[in-house]
């Protein structure tokens, strides 16, 4: 039996309130390299807040998030921003591509922000567009492509920088079944090939079925469903 890979992200006893409303109330989660973890739960259960805490976008009121052993709350804003650029990739429900840039420029953007030359960045971005089966969109702007195509461009952008963790918040929420499944298949195949872990927030069981395991968040508390089985 092979030993489980070292945890990449470990969240312990996370608590976060927005005003009097607790969003997280002792949530926990461990993410290992190369695995796809689905975070499920009813609307307002705290699953997006959990994702934002894990990604260092939101600071929890108490509790601890460690990325590769390093406590994220002890990092400066600049260090957390750098981490998000170099080690994390993001896919959101509505793509959130920059409308003024072409699809190729959107995908190349994380590399450009990391200091890569335009030519190199766009060459690598083109290979990712090809991998996500949207090569023909390279010169188009986000407003000229369909929702499903835009999400595939967003997945390419999330993976182009070879992140260790991809955070996907309802990545298929705005797509029909066929397009949603295509995006999920391409995202999970690419993540498995590159060894990236995926934290996938979804309320759709058929999307969660692309994961390796599942965490359910209810009333700000998490439950590892491996232990429920």
């Amino acid at each position: 039996m092979t030993a489980a890979p070292e945890p990449l992200l470990v969240a312990t006893d996370l608590r976060k309130a927005y005003g009097p409303t607790p969003a997280l109330d002792g949530a926990e989660l461990t993410v290992r390299a190369g695995e796809v973890v689905a975070v499920m739960g009813p609307s307002g259960s705290g699953k997006s807040t959990l994702l934002h805490c894990l990604a260092g976008i939101v600071t929890p009121d108490s509790g601890d998030v460690r990325y590769r052993g390093q406590q994220m709350s002890l990092m400066s804003d600049g260090e957390r921003s750098a981490l998000r650029r170099t080690d994390f990739g993001f896919v959101f429900q509505f793509g959130q591509l920059v409308p003024e840039l072409t699809c190729l420029e959107n995908v190349a953007m994380p590399l450009r922000l990391a200091g890569r030359r335009r030519k190199d960045a766009e060459a690598l971005a083109a290979t990712w567009l090809e991998r996500l089966e949207v090569t023909d969109l390279a010169g188009k702007r986000p407003g000229e492509v369909s929702g499903g195509q835009g999400q595939r461009v967003a997945v390419a952008r999330a993976l182009v920088g070879a992140p260790r963790v991809v955070f996907a918040d309802e990545p298929t929420g705005a797509l029909d079944s066929l397009n949603g499944e295509r995006v999920m298949r391409l995202l999970t195949d690419a993540a498995h090939d590159t060894g990236a872990a995926v934290v996938l927030v979804t309320h759709e069981p058929r999307v969660a079925a692309y994961s390796d395991r599942e965490i359910v968040v209810r009333d700000g508390k998490s439950r590892d469903m491996e232990r429920a089985a």
């Binding site: 069981p205 058929r206 079925a209 692309y210 599942e214 359910v216 469903m225 429920a228």
Partner: peptide, 15 residues
């Protein structure tokens, strides 16, 4: 919860 985990296990297999 254990039924839910069992359902999702089968859904993964089918996927």
């Amino acid at each position: 919860d254990s039924q839910r985990a069992e359902h999702l296990r089968l859904m993964r297999e089918l996927t």
